[in-house]
């Protein structure tokens, strides 16, 4: 049994599709132009989990994103997949927010939404890779969290959730509301139906997108955006991704294997 009016908020982010990076054959330099933007993969798994609960329990699914107006694209995609309501948080003063400031803005938006039973987030965004927004949002809303969700069951107001770590598996029971973070191991996101596409990408779909700015939220703008962020980007540069084949030299195979292990370790691959 489950309450009939379960309401799930899914936080999604629009990111540049880092899988689409192409390398110029002549120069070996990464081509950045025209990099398409997509729904962050982990967030899509979060949305799929919410939609599964919608199919199973008739839950209401609200997709929430923060970003430029262009981020409406991921909300339309969410609608096409089956989200009932979609909200874009858009304000110039929010630009440049770090993860904590982002969590604060999302928390303010969620408070404006009002009642909810569950928040689903992707574990990590493939652009920034901070993996912090989910837990920080849970902290600011003062609700419990389960990260790296692997299994989920709901009875009445109680969630039974299994999470993994590198070596262990924990199953917790807790009451909603709860925030859960997921990655691509949890499920296989659905392809939207063509009917869903036709409706979401229609004028009517466009009109369904709620856009909330700073004035719509109860938030201190001194605490968000670049100004309000506690961390600052100091500098950034492109990594060297031109593939230069290096043949590892060494006295014998053992020596070569050792140098290889060192290299892999330096590259943070093992």
């Amino acid at each position: 049994m489950i309450r009939s009016n379960m309401r799930i908020i899914v936080c999604i982010k629009q990111v540049p599709d880092t899988n689409e990076f192409k390398i110029d054959l002549e120069t070996g330099i990464m081509i950045r132009e025209g990099l398409p933007c997509v729904m962050n993969p982990d967030d899509k798994n979060a949305l799929e989990e919410a939609l599964r609960l919608k199919d199973e329990y008739n839950a209401e699914v609200i997709a929430l994103t923060m970003g430029p107006l262009q981020a409406k694209d991921v909300l339309k995609e969410a609608m096409a997949m089956g989200a009932d309501e979609v909200i874009l948080i858009n304000d110039l003063s929010f630009a440049g927010s770090d993860s904590l400031a982002t969590a604060a803005i999302l928390a303010a938006a969620i408070e404006r939404i009002g009642h909810y039973d569950m928040i689903l987030c992707g574990m990590q965004a493939m652009d920034g890779n901070t993996g912090q927004t989910g837990p920080q949002l849970a902290e600011l809303l003062n609700i419990p969290q389960i990260t790296y969700l692997k299994e989920l069951n709901i009875i009445d107001n109680t969630v039974t959730a299994t999470k993994w770590t590198e070596s262990e598996k924990y199953t917790f029971k807790l009451n909603m509301p709860v925030l859960l973070t997921v990655n691509n191991e949890l499920n296989d996101p659905r392809i939207p139906t063509m009917m869903g596409v036709m409706k979401a990408y229609d004028e009517a779909g466009e009109k369904k997108i709620k856009v909330w700015g700073a004035n719509d939220l109860d938030i201190d703008i001194e605490q968000v955006g670049i100004k309000g962020s506690v961390t600052n980007i100091y500098e950034s540069c492109l990594t060297h991704i031109n593939r230069v084949s290096t043949i590892i030299e060494g006295e014998d195979e053992k020596e070569m294997a050792k140098s290889l292990a060192m290299k892999l370790s330096e590259l943070n691959l093992i």
Partner: peptide, 10 residues
């Protein structure tokens, strides 16, 4: 970050 394409310091 950026799928291994960007090195950033903060």
């Amino acid at each position: 970050s950026f799928g291994g394409n960007l090195l950033s310091s903060a």
